[in-house]
Design a protein around this nucleic acid. Structure first.
Lengths: 195, 195
DNA sequence: CCGGGCATCTAGTCATTGACAAGTTCTCTC
DNA sequence: GAGAGAACTTGTCAATGACTAGATGCCCGG
């Protein structure tokens, strides 16, 4: 029960410790720089300890992606309308950069992992629910394209933000607020979907 | 002068051979899976040969990014108006997935490389030129936001496309065409910038 | 209370890789 | 035709991911 740092044989919650350290490392230097042995050192355990919880380097990244999609689904579910869902999308990326980065690089993890799949499904549902209250529509498959458009806008903004490509244009402005007013430019009154 | 595969001591054009092999590998398995030694094997040279041309693994990826930005600038420059520039953006991503992937992951390469910087500047100019012919504007800094919006839309679409997230929504439709009609949904006549 | 079973972690090893150093072979120029 | 330098090779080292076998401590049944 050593919740303290009393260095017993059993760590207590090594899985979470490794995951958190991984998130820090990814946020700081990208997923490529991630080293299992380094994470083990930071957690004060042997070099093979992480393997027990995650099997693999890929397994660790799969866990990151799964957790990411779960948190993502929660974040999206809390938003009232399409616009705020977009804002939540951007906010999630800004708040959980490591998760976000891994989630959208499928070559980093095992896409067939059960935990990942269910979390991913929840997130997809939340996303689709947001698109559902788009303009009246009736234009057939254009509705789907409109969903893709909204998704692309939020995703592009989030991605560019994380890669540092928006720092010039935003000049220190709050990204979230910037995105909110940005949507105001695009979704003019006539084709706006929210209240 | 052995332009043939006559296996002389000097390869002939090893730099390009390594670069091309790298692009293949990245497109197939992502930048993380890239191995200098593997590229050397494919090119039929010793394991240290790539280092002479690229110094580093990071150096190789820097070269990829630099070439990418150069090609990107060319691709963007050819487009007549904002919408077509967006289409060119998407087309570039689809045509040069490896370049595109590396370009927008700055933690993979050396951002202060001279060649990279000049190519990047050219691309940025081409991008800004596209935004210049946006709606009449007069709304002050909203113009900048509108540029960010257009960029986000194209970038998000391209990124989601490459990560395979649009395959469901597009159902085999041509991504380029899909993006084109998508822009038609957003840029309604009144705030459309092109002819 | 205690003994076995199991999850958790350690220690040791191997193949692979990136990076570097030093040497070899070719080419080009003066 | 020699030497200077570019292009490539060989050899080596530390670090890493992955695997195996073994040590440790917690928990549950008797």
């Amino acid at each position: 029960m050593s919740n303290e740092r009393e260095r017993t044989y059993h760590h207590g919650d090594l899985r979470r410790a490794i995951l958190s350290a991984a998130l820090d490392a990814i946020a700081a230097e990208g997923p490529a720089a991630l080293s299992l042995r380094d994470l083990a050192r930071r957690a004060g355990v042997s070099h093979a300890a992480p393997a027990h919880h995650f099997k693999d380097r890929t397994g660790l990244l799969t866990a990151v992606a799964a957790e990411g999609y779960a948190l993502f689904a929660d974040a999206l579910a809390g938003a009232p309308d399409l616009r705020e869902r977009g804002v939540a999308y951007v906010r999630f990326a800004a708040t959980h950069p490591a998760h976000f980065q891994v989630m959208f690089q499928p070559d980093l993890y095992r896409a067939d992992d059960p935990d990942l799949l269910s979390a991913q499904a929840r997130a997809t549902d939340a996303l689709r629910a947001g698109v559902a209250d788009l303009p009246p529509g009736g234009r057939g498959e254009d509705d789907r394209l409109a969903g893709v458009a909204a998704w692309s806008l939020a995703h592009g903004f989030a991605t560019l933000l994380l890669s540092g490509n928006l720092s010039d244009a935003l000049e220190g402005r709050d990204p979230e607020a910037a995105f909110r007013s940005l949507t105001g430019l695009i979704f003019t009154p006539e084709n706006r979907g929210d209240g």
